[in-house]
Amino acid sequence: MKFWRLPLDAKDHSIPQGELVIIKDRCKGCNFCIEFCPNQVLKESSEFNKKGYHPPQVTKQGECVNCNLCEIICPEFAIYSELKTYKELTSEDILNYSKKFGA
């Protein structure tokens, strides 16, 4: 999908901003959240938790759109996201989305 300008109803829409909370000692390092995050927000960290696994690490905190997929797909109940704010749509976001999902 490609947008060539800011949509006319951009004021009616907004981007939710989520904050990820990771319970590090519960993680068993299955990497489901890292692989399936639609925005690639997470990365495997180099630190060890209590069990000896590498818990995920948030690389781009502003990119999380609070879609809750990591919360649903985590087998260990070790990650969840909380809604923080809503961000207004700007032409920069539209350009980024066009680049990401465009042809």
Partner: peptide, 18 residues
Amino acid sequence: RIPHIWCPGCGLGVVLNT
């Protein structure tokens, strides 16, 4: 009861969560 006994990478935790 958490952490559960299921292996890392097992899908059962996902099903419980869903």
